[in-house]
Design a protein around this nucleic acid. Structure first.
Length: 225
DNA sequence: GGCCAGGACACCA
DNA sequence: TGGTGTCATGGC
């Protein structure tokens, strides 16, 4: 672990925590709902994901066995507010099918699989890519793996700590190599990155209120703060 | 009316 | 292996 880099990551974490407060992620009422949310929020604003989840809850479908037996066309209509609804309905079905076939529909049995096998298992499900797999592993199974998303790439690229076009695995290794492997820390750090990304560090950044403003190597200087 | 949002997959060169 | 197109609703 490079001491300088680790110290910077710790400082950034402290600033984000001070600015936004504890996020207490994941926003879900149960572990299966957490997994569903991870799939539905792919490239989608959370507010729309929440609408889709509300539809599923109202239909009594926040259960892997119930969802597995639901016609995919009907499922698609329920998750419509989250966008890409046909694709996402198929992805939810694929996840439920795997859960049923290998784990008897029992989510704790899946979560009992330890990293890195859990990650490989999730990645082998159609529709689950690196970010979704890691989100489920970290927030669902509560195992220590760092979640990388578009905000992570954008923010840490602007800070000059990573390359703007760094791939997922490279970014993940960067955080995993420079942070203690602590589940609550990983959970909170990713949530705080999202909080910053949603609030300030957009393509047109609103840097005046950014808690990382003086650390920013690119975005803030470019727009004049 | 255009841009963007807590990605992933299929296809092609 | 990397680039590009596709999937799609809803807020601003």
């Amino acid at each position: 672990m490079a001491a300088g880099t680790a110290a910077r990551l710790e400082e950034i974490y402290g600033r984000l925590l001070a600015a936004f407060g504890p996020q207490g992620w994941w926003p879900a009422e149960g572990d299966f709902e957490m997994c569903v949310g991870a799939i539905l929020t792919q490239s989608t604003a959370w507010v729309n994901t929440a609408r889709a989840i509300a539809n599923l809850r109202a239909a009594g479908l926040l259960d892997p066995l119930e969802m597995d037996t639901m016609p995919v066309e009907d499922l698609a209509m329920l998750v419509r507010p989250s966008g890409y609804f046909n694709m996402k309905a198929r992805k939810l079905k694929a996840f439920c099918r795997r859960l049923g076939e290998r784990y008897g529909g029992d989510l704790p049995s899946l979560f009992h699989v330890k990293l890195p096998c859990l990650r490989e298992e999730l990645l082998s499900v159609w529709g689950i890519g690196p970010e979704t797999a890691d989100s489920i592993a970290l927030y669902g199974a509560r195992q220590p793996i760092f979640v990388v998303d578009a905000y992570t790439r954008r923010i840490f690229g602007r800070l000059g700590l990573t390359l703007p076009d760094a791939d997922y695995d490279h970014l993940q290794r960067f955080f995993m190599a420079n942070l203690p492997h602590d589940v609550p820390l990983f959970q909170e750090y990713h949530a705080l990155i999202v909080a910053l990304g949603k609030d300030l560090c957009r393509p047109a950044p609103r840097c005046r209120r950014c808690p990382l403003r003086d650390l920013c190597a690119e975005g803030c200087a470019r727009v004049g703060g």
